[in-house]
Design a protein around this nucleic acid. Structure first.
Lengths: 341, 341
DNA sequence: AATCATTATGCAAACGTTTGCATATAAATT
DNA sequence: AATTTATATGCAAACGTTTGCATAATGATT
């Protein structure tokens, strides 16, 4: 029993045709007669022939594989984005290979080096938190690798990006708290060296100013990475300090959930005494009681948009476009943690 | 300005050596003199040469890419497993390409067909819930594609598998409730046509029997997919029905959380009046109040183990082994939802 | 000095597919 | 009947790397 894979040549011999004819027949090339196509396809099915994609990629020097670099894939936001990327890629015949930078610049660099090995048609990137310089990305651009950034995108680098309007979303979230009657609105924010968290703070600030509310610096706290535990610490500070907040806008849902719990434990009524809004629409926001008002950042849609844009770039549909920035529409999901009366 | 990629031949010409020498030098082949190696590596660095992996894969007819088929990657368990796979693969120089079956048999079949295109050295699979026959997997085996299954594994198919001991874990979880003094322990389970959920029920049953406790069929409820909403429905049934449970063992954390909430809302004290245990150690289990006692299924470790086993199979280190089943150790994380006194 | 062993490098074929061009045959047009 | 056009298929080279084998150059052994 011969266990070699069936190749085009085997099919050719079997059918007394040339390999090129077989290849074209399977491609539905117009120059091949319908009868031959039929015969070839039947035989291919019969012998269980499948193209060797490696050989094809090699010959055409192009692949149908996309790379994704995310800080980590076990963070719900990223797993949703990747899910969106995979979904779109699957429909268009592309594969998706994933890499985790684990927020390490060193690892991110290593990965971008790997990407130079011709295996990938393009790459979707959410940069590591450590990354402040972009030389390694520029190297990719130099070798004409299409890139689409998402979420944490490099500032000051001309590149395609999929983002949400963090400023505006935060503005709306804060304005919602104001509409609910809050006067002393606190903010639990993320590291201000990360663009998106800076924008979220600025949106919050702008909303307060627009409505002539004071920005108490005692009510603004920045955490290192918006973890649940940091949220607990920060919420306790707010609980103890002065002035007492009657609303909190948090830059993510974890800190918002911790705030709900800390305040509730002290007998503070949510949303009556303190209204709370989060950011990202994590699964827990629908489970925590009261359900958390939050910003739906449409991570899955971001992923789909990223894949779509990247593939368009790879296939050079509009080769006069150098870069493109797409902003995904967010929505404020009003739930019980902020709904008054 | 010539924009072609640098190839071995270019390097060869530049250094007045043959392509084979270059290739071997970069590979640290013993037959090449140290001086030549040094020269070659320097020049490669200088010209920014990177191997064309496609060409190499083609020539060697082997790739360093693993495929993963998961039902979906935005489920925390799977994203953790994939994270583990990626971590191990990264360290061993493999890439990881992901596919989502979305629990559809049709899509799973389509994906397994794609896998026959020579692009992958092996595949890690968690089968779709719809899948009951394994012909499409057998096709892969027939073409000598190494496979490792995890979590939802095919029964009655000789294959390598990474599993946890669902039966024993559930037994221990239930026994824990018994030790806490529970006499009427309910079970919220998953579809009994899925092996792992059947085993979890059986472990629960066995623990009750061992301790001569009755298995009230009014206290055993199977849901379709263990969703939060189904959990709410089921918990309400338990709350209204007879006999009243004083403990609940749930086959996942979502239903356990919903049970906590439903009972709490009716003023039932957790764990004093009803003790609750979940399964899987989802992030929410550490956040819900009281914190949920649950089984840590070590998803990340499962992923690492799967990658390790798969790569061992690909590299045929023990080619006399036909298949291997690895059971990952679980642990019962005792938290406040079941801790009495 | 002749032979053998060792070390370093090169030659050339091969992997399976795709594709521009050539060719053969049949059909249509003069 | 001769020429043009259309249709269907084949030829052969190419993509960049790897690898078994051959060869050249050097050093060691008789």
């Amino acid at each position: 029993m011969n266990n070699r894979r069936i190749t085009l040549k085997d099919l050719a011999k079997e059918l007394e045709l040339s390999a090129s004819t077989i290849s074209r027949a399977l491609d539905n090339h117009p120059g091949i007669s319908p009868e031959t196509k039929e015969k070839v396809k039947l035989k291919a099915e019969e012998l269980g022939f499948t193209r060797n994609s490696i050989a094809a990629s090699f010959r055409k020097s192009k692949t149908l594989t996309l790379a994704v670099i995310a800080p980590r894939i076990d963070i719900h936001f990223h797993s949703l984005v990747i899910s969106g990327i995979e979904e779109y890629a699957y429909k268009t015949g592309y594969n998706v290979t994933i890499f985790q930078s684990r927020d390490s610049l060193k690892r991110e660099k290593k990965i971008t080096e790997t990407l130079q090995n011709n295996m990938f048609g393009g790459v979707v990137i959410c940069q590591a938190s450590e990354t402040k310089a972009y030389e390694h990305f520029k190297k990719l651009t130099k070798m004409k690798m299409p890139i689409v950034f998402y979420d944490r995108v490099p500032t000051g680098l001309e590149a395609s990006k999929i983002i949400i309007n963090d400023y505006e979303s935060s503005f709306l979230a804060t304005e919602h708290l104001i509409e609910m009657g809050c006067k002393r609105i606190a903010h639990i924010g993320g590291s201000q060296s990360t663009g998106i968290f800076k924008s979220r703070f600025e949106g919050y600030e702008a909303a307060l100013k627009k409505h002539q509310l004071p920005v108490y610096k005692e009510l603004v706290h920045f955490t290192k990475d918006l973890s649940y535990d940091e949220g607990v610490l920060t919420a306790n500070k707010l609980l103890m300090g002065q002035p007492k907040p009657d609303g909190i806008f948090c830059s993510n849902d974890y800190t918002a959930v911790s705030a709900i719990q800390v305040f509730q434990k002290k007998g503070v009524k949510i949303p009556e005494q303190v209204a709370i809004v989060g950011f990202s629409n994590y699964p827990i926001s629908k489970i925590i009681e009261p359900n958390l008002t939050t910003i739906n950042d449409r991570a899955f849609d971001m992923g789909q948009a990223a894949a779509k844009l990247l593939i368009r770039q790879i296939e050079e549909e509009d080769d006069f476009i150098q870069s493109e920035i797409i902003t995904i529409k967010t929505e404020l999901l009003i739930r019980d943690s902020s709904r008054r009366k």
